[in-house]
Structures are given as structure tokens and as C-alpha cells.
Design a protein around this nucleic acid. Structure first.
Length: 697
DNA sequence: TTACGCTGTCATGTA
DNA sequence: CGTACATGACAGCGT
């Protein structure tokens, strides 16, 4: 039955392709509702592996397939698309697809592979599938089903596969471009293995594409056709960019709430994105900075997409290939990222100078935000930022300013209250998982790393933490092997030595060699971090040192309660410091208590063992004594018997005959006199005596 | 690779 | 009610 469905699906898809090539519009949605399930399984939202892995490049990075936010996210998107479909002009999908096909096929299997994968990864299974390809588990995604009539190239980019029934919406185009850019960086930052894999997929896809085209034309013909269709790319992209801008506004207006939960996964780049993620994953920031997150994400979309689109536009205008455009756009995107990162650090710097964190400073975080959003944003931010946030930022900047070891800086971002391991776990979840993916791919290090934040923290200190890394040790990633983090770190160092923050840091063009050098450098950084770290210090000692707590751990722990409370009240301590101090005291006390408890337990065990040994000795002694006594008793009995016999042997009755000892017995009276009594009477008297004793008892 | 002990930490109960 | 203490349980780490 399954095969039959598969067969039908393939046939219908191929038929649809043929019809689309012939200019006949076919809406497969109405005919093939079950395709989605046939191909993807019950639901793409529930099929974790292919769906999640393919979406992982951008929006799915921090959104677990099982996340309840996912439904609302897709629902919001779908509704948004539907609403937009009511009035907006649409860019025919085929133009974009053709453009992509053109550029991709120009040099597909080589350098453009990452790009291709980027474009294909973005919308789920669109990555590896042609509309006609129904083999394998990862098949044209759920929303794919309509093929454009005119130029609906059966190309694998058949991204159309990812579009909603009907048209390829602007949002999807935007996403595609954004994904492409981001995914390119993503792939770039990853190991060659990943890229090779991507290349394989792309090559395979290309084959499949060509294969699927046999009904109509070969790929060259398609390319020629596409070239004809893209004779005016500039026009298309101008329209496209305009639509993008409209989409941005619509997106902000209509789907802000629903997307808010999903948007945090949107990251402009690995380095800045992770830094941003780290920053936002600060325990105190988690809730209060949600506004920032959403806003920043929209900013990301603006800041990354606009220059990118410009560059793409230029690229098209200059008849550049898409790949070139992407290369050209990557530095631009990077620059915007750097710029934002600078602003983030500028925030720190402003805190260094002692100025209270003002709206102006905060606004630097979002340079690309328009005035309206900025005005509202800053208020939200300021209202959302609690004191701890400023403490963290201030301490972070202080550490940076005074040349702290990055590890020490990282301490500032640790969970101030590590009591609740659960809350820590909840805060790390999907985002950190995505981060772990990247780092694990890059360095082949993995760590299960579930559990307390303290654990992850300690492991990160030992340089063993792969990537899952605790949320508490976010900036600890300075010392990790993630290239992106190293990138971040380098940026931070730039800022550290240049407090003007006006110049964008110049980063060379990404290249595999550069990537390798990054790896080498970052490994050096980690080793140096590990070396500089005083391993002799306990976790609490390191934490206290990092937070510049003016007391030693011993003092904190052994201090009497009154002195401890007075100390907390006398010294100006931030909430983080107080929290850490209390934790240190509690843990220290408990540590001592646990040691004492174990010592006592051992003492008890040892004492019990001693008691057992003593009792054994006593038992042996008693047994010996018992044996000795019984031996004595037996000896005395023997002597008594001898005496008895001797006495009876000498006794004679009235006739002079010897007395039979079996019939008579000797009885001692209380007065010491001895009588010879017949045994019958003796026994009866004994019975009476025993009865009397029983009655008395 | 597994078993085991040590240690730190947390949760919980008690004084 | 807050604090200190005790203790079982758990997890990580080293041997």
C-alpha cells in the first residue's frame, strides 16, 4: 500500500512537472493532501530528525520540533501568509527559483555547494528534494504542492516545493535569502566533513533534478530557459526588495507575539548570534530581556537582510553569480554583526565609565532600529532590565576593562543562584543544543552535559565542555573551541583595546584556511585559558574571585551569622554578589557538614566494627570460660559420684547387707546432717518442693 | 570498560 | 521564620 502511494505520488508529481512545463497550472494540494504524510510521515512537526536537522540552520535552531511554540509559530506564519496573500503583489516564485538555479548550476558542485545547501536547508526538506523525487524519508515538505505554470523549473531548487500552495510568498523569499546567507556562514564555520556532506547532497540533488527533467528537457535546456526568464533580474529584485520591506513591516505588526517565541532562534551569525544568545541566556536576562530579543531579531532581519539584499541587487545588476553575491554579502552581514557586537560592547564600555546605563547606551545595541521602534524599544528595555542585568553588564565591563581573564569574565555570567538546577536546565535547552551542534561538528567534542549548571561550569573550566554547555557559563565559551566564539573573542579583544568602537573590525574573507587557523588559534586560546586558570581554586573560590567578593570562601563559610549579616549589610554588594556569597556559605557549610557526616558515619562504622570485634573476643573468652566451667563441673560430678559410691559401699542396713544405691539416696538436711532416704520418698519430697516453688512464683 | 571510593552538591528533615 | 546542622541521594571524577 505504501509503495502504491509512493508510486502514485511520484507519478503525479512528474505529471505535474510536465504540465507545469507545458504552462498548465496544477495545484497538487487539492489532489494530494496525503503527500505530506506519505513523504514526511505523520507530520513534519513530529518527525524530529529530518525536519529538525534541516530547519536547524536558522529558525529551527532553537526551536525544538516538539516545542509547543512551534505550532504557534507555523500557525502564525501560515496566517500571515494567507493575510498577505489577500492583497499583496507576489513575486512569481519561478523568478527567484530560476535565478537560484542559474547561479547554482553555474558552479554547482564546488564552492556553491554550501550556498546551495543553505538555500535548501532553510525550508525543511526542500533541501534535498525535487518535486519529482519522492524517494527517501526527507521529501518535499508539507506545504509543497503547487508548481508554477510558466517557468516552474523542476529544478531541485524547486523551492517551490517549500512554498504554500499557490505562490512563493515574499516572506519565504526573504527567508530564503536570509537562510542562504546565514547558512553559508554556518557551513563555512563547520568542518570540511560537513561541507563534503553538503556537497554530496547537492550533487545528488543535481542528479535528481536532471533526472526528473527527462520528461521535458535536460538541465541545459532548463538553464537556457531560465536565463531567458531572468533577462531583467534587477527589476525582479527591486520589486523583491520592496516586497521584503513590506513583509518586514507586516511581520512586525502581525506576528510579533506569535513569532516571539520562535524568533529567538533567529541568529544573524554564529559568532554574534552565540554571543547574543549567551547574553540573553543569562538567568536574569532570560525573562526580562525577551523584549530585547524580539526586537533584536527584527533588527537582525533588517540589518542582515538589507545590506545583503543590496549586495544581491548589485550582484545581479553587475551580472554576478549568486555565489559571488553571497560572498560579497557575507562580509556585509558580518560587518553588521560586528557593528552590533561593537555596540554590545559599547554598552559595556559605557558601564565602565561609570555612567548609568541609559537609554542612549541601550539604543546602541540596536543601531539599525528605526526611530519608532527604538523609542518604544528603549522604554521596554529599560523597564525590562532589572538591577541584576546592570550588575552583570557592569561587572562584565569591569572585568574587560581591568584585563580580567576571560574565564573570570565568564564567571560574571554564571547563574547567580545555582540552587535551582531545574531552572538552569530549562534555560539552556534548545539553543545551547544548537550551539553544541556547531562546536561538536567543528571539533568533534561532545559532552552529554546534562545536569547541574555547576557541572557544566566545572567542565568548561577544565576545557572539557563540548558545547551543550550550561547556560550559566555562557561567556565561558570564550575559552571553548568554537570558531564562532573565537570570532567573538577576537572581536571582544578588539574592543578591549580600542574603546572608540567606531571602526568596524576588519575580518579577512572567510576561507577554509582561515577556518583552520581559527581552530589552531582557538585551541591555543583554550589551552592558555586552562593554563592560566588556577585549578587549585575551588569553584566557589573562582566565583568569589570573579565577582570580586572581598572575602575569602573560608571567611564566608566560617563567619558567624551575625558577622555574616553585618558584612552583607555594611558592604555594598550587588544582588549577584550577595547571592553568590550566600551560596558559597550554604555550600561551604553543607560541605563541612557532609564531611563531618561522613566522618561520623565512618566513625560509627568503625566503632561498630570495633564493638563487633570486642564482642567476638568476649564471646570466645566466655566460651572458653564456659568450657572450663563445664569441665570443672564434670570433674566435680565425677568426684561426687565417686564419693557417693564410696559412701554406699560402706553403708549397711539393719541386717548388715549393703545398701542398694538405686533404691536409696543420700539426703542432706538443712542442719548439715545426712540421711539415707529411700528414693521413693526422696522423689515425692522433691515434687512437693518444686510445686511449692511454683506456687511461690 | 567497569567497579568502586571520594567528594561536592542538593533536597529534606530536625533542632 | 531563619539558620545551622544532619543525612540520604545523586552525579562527577579519579583510580
Amino acid at each position: 500500500m505504501k509503495d502504491l502511494k509512493k508510486y502514485m505520488t511520484e507519478g503525479l508529481l512528474q505529471f505535474a512537472i510536465l504540465l507545469s512545463l507545458a504552462g498548465v497550472r496544477v495545484d497538487l494540494d487539492s489532489y494530494l493532501p496525503p503527500i505530506r504524510e506519505i513523504i514526511l510521515g505523520s507530520s513534519s512537526a513530529y518527525s524530529q530528525i529530518p525536519f529538525h536537522s534541516l530547519r536547524d540552520t536558522w529558525e529551527g535552531s532553537s526551536l525544538h520540533p516538539k516545542s509547543p511554540d512551534l505550532d504557534s509559530f507555523f500557525t502564525a506564519r501560515r496566517l500571515l501568509e494567507e493575510v498577505r496573500a489577500l492583497g499583496d503583489t507576489r513575486v512569481p516564485r519561478t523568478e527567484v527559483s530560476a535565478w537560484l538555479v542559474h547561479t547554482v548550476s553555474a558552479d554547482a558542485a564546488e564552492t556553491g555547494s554550501a550556498l546551495l545547501s543553505a538555500g535548501s536547508n532553510e525550508e525543511g526538506s526542500a533541501s534535498t528534494d525535487t518535486p519529482s523525487n519522492s524517494e527517501g524519508p526527507s521529501q518535499p515538505p508539507a506545504r509543497s504542492s503547487s508548481l508554477q505554470p510558466s517557468h516552474a523549473t523542476p529544478s531541485h531548487i524547486g523551492t517551490g516545493a517549500t512554498s504554500t500552495p499557490g505562490d512563493y510568498t515574499k516572506e519565504q523569499q526573504e527567508d530564503k535569502l536570509g537562510y542562504s546567507d546565514e547558512s553559508y556562514n554556518y557551513n563555512y564555520l563547520h568542518s570540511d566533513n560537513g561541507k563534503a556532506k553538503v556537497d554530496e547532497e547537492v550533487a545528488q540533488d543535481s542528479e535528481e533534478v536532471d533526472h526528473s527533467n527527462t520528461g521535458a528537457s535536460d538541465s541545459n535546456n532548463i538553464r537556457a530557459e531560465i536565463d531567458q526568464n531572468t533577462t531583467e533580474p534587477t527589476l525582479f529584485f527591486e520589486e523583491f526588495i520592496q516586497l521584503l520591506a513590506q513583509t518586514e513591516n507586516a511581520l512586525e505588526d502581525t506576528s510579533d507575539n506569535s513569532l516571539q517565541s520562535a524568533e529567538p532562534s533567529t541568529r544573524p551569525g554564529n559568532s554574534v548570534g552565540e554571543l547574543w544568545q549567551d547574553f540573553l541566556s543569562l538567568p536574569d536576562l532570560n525573562i526580562t530581556l525577551e523584549d530585547i530579543q524580539s526586537i533584536s531579531n527584527t533588527n537582525n532581519a533588517i540589518s542582515t537582510s538589507v545590506p545583503f539584499n543590496e549586495s544581491v541587487n548589485e550582484a545581479v545588476g553587475q551580472d554576478m553569480s549568486l555565489q559571488e553575491a553571497m560572498f560579497a554579502s557575507s562580509p556585509a552581514a558580518r560587518s553588521s554583526e560586528d557593528h552590533r557586537q561593537e555596540n554590545l560592547l559599547q554598552l559595556n564600555s559605557s558601564a565602565i565609565s561609570g555612567d548609568p546605563l541609559s537609554a542612549t547606551n541601550l539604543s546602541n545595541l540596536f543601531p539599525n532600529t528605526d526611530n519608532n521602534s527604538r523609542n518604544s524599544t528603549n522604554q521596554d528595555l529599560l523597564s525590562g532590565l532589572d538591577e541584576n542585568v546592570f550588575d552583570e553588564i557592569n561587572l562584565m565591563s569591569l572585568a574587560l576593562e581591568e584585563g580580567f581573564d576571560p574565564l573570570e569574565v565568564s564567571q560574571l555570567f554564571e547563574e547567580p543562584d545555582s540552587d535551582s538546577g531545574l531552572s538552569l536546565n530549562s534555560s539552556r535547552s534548545p539553543t545551547s543544543a544548537s550551539i553544541s551542534d556547531s562546536s561538536s561538528i567543528t571539533f568533534g567534542e561532545e559532552e552529554g552535559a546534562a545536569g547541574y549548571s555547576s557541572d557544566s561550569e566545572s567542565t568548561s573550566y577544565d576545557g572539557l565542555e563540548g558545547a551543550v554547555g550550561g547556560s550559566g557559563s555562557e561567556i565561558n565559551k570564550f575559552c571553548q573551541m568554537d570558531d564562532a566564539n573565537y570570532y567573538t573573542e577576537m572581536s571582544l579583544h578588539n574592543v578591549h583595546h580600542n574603546h572608540t568602537y567606531n571602526q568596524l573590525p576588519n575580518h579577512s574573507e572567510p576561507s577554509p584556511e582561515h577556518h583552520y587557523s581559527w581552530s589552531v588559534k582557538s585551541s591555543k586560546v583554550r589551552s592558555s585559558c586552562v593554563n592560566t586558570m588556577d585549578k587549585n581554586l575551588s569553584r566557589d573560590e573562582r566565583r568569589a574571585k570573579s565577582l570580586r567578593i572581598p572575602f575569602s570562601v573560608d571567611e564566608i563559610v566560617s563567619m558567624p551569622v551575625e558577622m555574616f549579616n553585618s558584612m552583607l549589610s555594611k558592604h555594598y554588594l550587588t544582588e549577584s554578589q550577595v547571592s553568590v556569597i550566600r551560596d558559597i556559605r550554604r555550600r561551604g557549610k553543607n560541605k563541612v557538614a557532609a564531611q563531618n557526616c561522613r566522618k561520623r558515619k565512618l566513625d560509627v562504622i568503625l566503632n561498630l566494627e570495633d564493638d563487633v570485634n570486642q564482642l567476638k573476643v568476649q564471646k570466645e573468652k566466655l566460651l572458653k570460660e564456659q568450657a572450663h566451667c563445664s569441665k570443672s563441673v564434670n570433674h566435680m560430678k565425677q568426684k561426687l559420684n565417686d564419693l557417693y559410691r564410696d559412701v554406699f559401699s560402706r553403708l549397711r542396713d539393719e541386717q548388715g547387707r549393703p545398701v542398694n544405691p538405686s533404691q536409696y539416696a543420700l539426703h542432706c538436711n538443712s542442719d548439715g546432717s545426712i540421711m539415707v532416704v529411700p528414693r521413693r520418698l526422696f522423689k515425692s519430697e522433691q515434687k512437693k518442693d518444686t510445686q511449692k516453688e511454683k506456687k511461690q512464683k
